[in-house]
């Protein structure tokens, strides 16, 4: 597997030269492999939004470099517009970007900007609509007549239609009801599995990330707190809690049990794993 993204010593400061200077992102270096599903977590102000906007060329870093497929995107010879087609970024509350008369036209906005002909645009729109579960009837409707969850899916389709090699989603499930949340997250997971593309999912809630991500990047105060396989990251549940992150309910339960000398194991972050832990415990006891 090749490298999809490489960040070298990346920093970004806001309000440089004023008393309000903040290190939003502070010398971040990391490598993300192709086809990986990375969950990016960290609480508000941890620098995760700034970080992803630098990856897609919307914010220029104060220091450091971003390599996409081995190319430094802030090189003068590189067109940032082309990078944005390669690295699709879906913003928080992305339904606020919808503007066209029909869902179809809105999804077509990105592919059209790529300079494709109508035929290719049509293909891409239908491809993205299918991934996001948007049927033909919905394509003809106005995006403003849809429900919140549907609008969100249209906005996601608008970025997926550009067929980016890397898809970055900033809180794609925020503000949706539980059903809408699950649907959007499931669709993203299916997209990752079927397309094999690299996906970065940003969230402040681990519960969103835990079931889907192969790797987890935890940001804290602009720095990388840890970046590892999902299993390994969640074995540090207690440390994550200390930096103010909301760990999954079941992990909290496992941690609480530990105080009573009931050890379910270190990386309990899904109910399935907790069940396994309980079973292990009972079989061990029987052996004793």
């Amino acid at each position: 597997m090749g490298l999809a993204i490489e960040l070298k010593n990346l920093s970004h400061k806001y309000s440089i030269g004023t008393p309000f200077e903040i290190n939003a992102v502070d010398s971040v270096s990391l490598k993300i492999n192709q086809g990986e599903f990375v969950g990016v977590i960290g609480h508000t102000g941890s620098g995760k939004s700034t970080l992803i906007q630098m990856i897609n060329g919307l914010i220029k870093p104060s220091e450091g470099a971003v390599f996409i497929d081995g190319v430094n995107i802030y090189d003068k010879a590189v067109s940032l517009r082309d990078i944005r087609f390669k690295v699709g970024l879906v913003f928080q509350y992305s339904e606020h970007q919808l503007f066209e008369e029909t869902v179809y036209k809105d999804i077509a906005f990105g592919p059209k900007n790529m300079g494709l002909n109508d035929n290719e645009v049509d293909k891409k729109v239908r491809y993205a609509a299918k991934i996001m579960g948007i049927d033909d009837e919905m394509l003809k409707r106005s995006p403003f007549d849809l429900s919140g969850g549907q609008m969100r899916r249209v906005a996601l389709a608008g970025v997926i239609a550009m067929e980016p090699q890397i898809l970055i989603l900033d809180e794609p499930a925020a503000g949706l009801d539980p059903k809408g949340r699950r649907k959007v997250l499931e669709l993203i997971k299916d997209y990752h599995e079927n397309s094999g593309k690299t996906v970065l999912l940003v969230s402040h809630s681990m519960e969103d990330v835990v079931d889907y991500a192969t790797k987890v990047l935890v940001m804290n105060k602009g720095r990388v707190f840890c970046y590892d396989d999902t299993d390994k990251v969640f074995s540090k549940a207690q440390q994550l809690q200390e930096i103010g992150l909301d760990i999954p309910q079941i992990s909290r339960f496992a941690l609480a049990l530990k105080k009573y000398d009931v050890d379910l194991g270190n990386n309990i972050y899904t109910v399935k794993k907790a069940v396994q832990g309980v079973l292990n415990l009972t079989t061990n006891k029987e052996k004793l």
């Binding site: 906007q53 897609n56 919307l58 517009r81 944005r84 087609f85 699709g88 970024l89 879906v90 913003f91 992305s94 606020h96 970007q97 906005f109 990105g110 900007n113 790529m114 608008g158 970025v159 550009m162």
Partner: peptide, 16 residues
């Protein structure tokens, strides 16, 4: 603030 956000979102979709 809202305008800034929308501009970024459309830029991410290749708006020029």
């Amino acid at each position: 603030e809202e305008t800034d956000k929308i501009v970024l979102a459309q830029k991410a979709r290749g708006a020029n």
